[in-house]
Write a protein that binds this DNA or RNA. Structure first.
Length: 333
DNA sequence: AACCTATGCAACCGCAGCGAA
DNA sequence: TTTCGCTGCGGTTGCATAGGT
């Protein structure tokens, strides 16, 4: 941790500017008192009016990540871990979106948790499951590796999902599994993926073959055989749309936050907003290019209960299994 | 006890989006 | 239309601490 009186450079260089480094208890008090008395306004005004020699950005960060009264401190519960993993499989590194669905947790906290704990675990799993044959220069993913990864993740509780054979054809199971696997493949820590021919959840930029997905929605688009978007030379997915849990009120302060406004302007563009709490109201626009998309307005509790299934869009099972079976190194059947 | 290394996490940085002027 | 300031986000850094040797 940085010391409140960060030595040397910062303080010297910022005598007439803004303070940097760790926050002192006095600064915390000032900010806390100001926020409680005045609420959030322009952050640069907050910094000034609270008598802090900090930039507004720093004040905002401190409040959001540390001082906010509704923050939940302490270790992540297993349920939260599962939630994070699952949401990450759907949302990727959109930490703020993930945090919006975890009451009392901050994006920074989740990001740190992911980058340290979970990535480490996955890395261990990868190394422990990778067969010698797949550790060579070939970037082709191995069925064994992926299968092992999944099973080991289950064994170790990283990815818990009911694998009862009777549920193996469940669309939600396969959907969640597919989303997880897709995202797992996109994870930079897994070098098995040839990123030059990989998937781009965010659409557009970079040298990726672009398979676009709108913000707030995990959508893995079309990869057809015989197109330039081949994945290791093989077509894989017809469009995959995975719904994510809608933003819910994550604060006890606003019970009425359950109301969600879902607007359909008939151009396949949806937008919804959900109060997160009185100070942090996040908006999220969802753009869909699939007519079957819809926004689940279910309660969070219906969406996630430990290992229960994530609510997903209406998928045709056959189509789904076709998608999955087309996957060159997965066999769910 | 001293040193080294790994880990966790608070905070910073740069960028993009947005609205107002 | 452009510029500017503010906000929010994701990536990264750097320090304190725990654990190992």
């Amino acid at each position: 941790m940085r010391k409140p009186e960060a030595s040397g450079k910062n303080n010297v260089n910022n005598i007439n500017k803004f303070r940097k480094g760790l926050w002192s208890p006095e600064e915390d008090d000032k900010l806390m008192n100001y926020m409680l008395n005045n609420g959030q306004g322009c952050w640069s005004d907050v910094a000034r009016n609270a008598g802090l020699q900090r930039c507004g950005k720093s004040c905002r960060l401190r409040w959001i990540n540390y001082l906010r009264p509704d923050l939940k401190r302490g270790a992540f519960s297993p349920q939260e871990e599962e939630m994070i993993i699952h949401l990450h499989s759907l949302l990727g590194n959109r930490w703020s979106q993930i945090a919006a669905r975890l009451p009392g947790r901050t994006d920074n906290e989740i990001k740190n948790f992911w980058n340290s704990t979970i990535k480490k675990r996955l890395k261990n799993l990868q190394s422990s499951n990778a067969s010698p044959n797949t550790s060579d220069s070939s970037s082709e993913p191995s069925k064994d590796v992926m299968g092992g990864l999944i099973s080991t993740m289950q064994e170790q509780g990283i990815f818990s999902m009911n694998m009862d054979p009777s549920l193996s054809s469940s669309s939600s199971l396969a959907t969640s599994m597919k989303a997880m696997i897709l995202n797992t493949m996109m994870d930079p820590l897994l070098p098995m993926l040839d990123y030059d021919h990989g998937l781009n959840m965010y659409g557009g930029a970079g040298g990726y073959e672009s398979i676009t997905a709108p913000p707030c929605m995990a959508q893995v688009g079309v990869l057809n055989s015989g197109t330039d978007h081949g994945f290791y030379g093989e077509g894989i997915f017809e469009g995959i749309n995975v719904e994510i849990p809608p933003l819910e009120s994550v604060s006890c302060m606003e019970e009425n936050a359950k109301t969600q406004n879902i607007q359909d302007n008939n151009t396949d563009k949806y937008s919804y907003s959900s109060p997160v709490n009185s100070l942090y109201h996040r908006n999220c626009n969802i753009t869909s290019n699939n007519k079957t998309d819809n926004i689940a307005a279910d309660q969070m509790g219906n969406l996630w209960h430990g290992s229960e299934e994530l609510k997903v869009g209406e998928w045709d099972l056959e189509e789904l299994m076709k998608d999955v079976s087309a996957f060159p190194f997965l066999d769910f059947q």
